[in-house]
Computed example of a mutant assay.
Amino acid sequence: MKTMSAKAAKNGFGLLLDTARAEPVTIEKHGRPVVVVISVEEFGRLSAELGEAQAEAARGNKIK
């Protein structure tokens, strides 16, 4: 996972977008991680996984 400062993300927004399409990017402010930027495809995949896990939990199955 790549890491960028908030200032670098602001000044290089195009680079942030290009990088986040390939892999998650952690944005740091004052040296501390504050957000992670991910592609819409990765967000969709994670949302689907979460939905499946919640459905299993609702059926009474344990989440692995």
Rank of each mutant, 00 (worst) to 15 (best):
L17H: 09
K7A: 13
V34H: 03
E41L: 06
R59Q: 12
A20C: 04
E23M: 10
L17R: 14
K64I: 10
K62C: 02
H30N: 15
L15G: 00
Q54L: 15
K2F: 06
M4I: 05
L46N: 04
F13V: 07
A6W: 04
G60Q: 13
G51V: 05
E52W: 02
A6N: 09
G60V: 13
L16D: 02
A48Q: 15
E28Q: 10
P24D: 03
S47H: 09
A57H: 08
E41Y: 09
E56L: 13
A57L: 15
D18R: 15
A57V: 09
V40A: 13
A58S: 13
A9N: 00
T3Q: 12
V36G: 01
R32H: 12
G31M: 06
R32F: 03
E56F: 01
G31V: 10
V37T: 09
E49K: 07
I38F: 02
T19K: 11
R32S: 12
E23I: 09
K62M: 11
H30T: 13
G31S: 06
A48F: 11
K64R: 13
L17E: 14
A6G: 03
E28P: 00
G44C: 05
K64C: 06
E56Q: 14
G44W: 02
A58K: 15
A48M: 14
V40F: 11
A53R: 13
R32C: 07
R45G: 00
G31F: 03
A53Q: 09
K29S: 12
K29Q: 14
A6C: 08
K29W: 04
P33K: 07
K2Y: 11
T26H: 04
F43T: 03
L16C: 04
G51R: 14
G60T: 13
V40E: 14
L15A: 10
V37E: 00
K2I: 08
R32T: 13
F13D: 05
G31K: 05
E56A: 14
K2V: 09
T26S: 11
S47K: 15
K64G: 04
L17F: 11
G12T: 07
A6P: 02
A55M: 12
K62E: 13
E56V: 05
E56P: 00
T19P: 03
K7D: 13
A20F: 01
V34D: 07
G31R: 08
S47F: 07
A9D: 02
A53F: 00
E52Y: 00
N61Y: 12
I27L: 03
V35P: 00
P33I: 13
E28H: 02
L16S: 04
E42V: 02
G51K: 12
M1V: 14
F43Y: 12
G60K: 13
F43Q: 10
S5E: 09
R45I: 04
E52L: 14
K29T: 15
A22Q: 15
K64M: 10
G31Q: 08
G51T: 03
V37S: 03
N61I: 10
V35Y: 02
A20R: 03
V37K: 01
R21P: 00
M1C: 07
S5G: 10
E56K: 15
S5W: 02
A58D: 14
H30G: 05
K7Q: 14
V35K: 02
P24C: 07
H30P: 00
I38Y: 01
E42D: 08
G12N: 12
I63G: 01
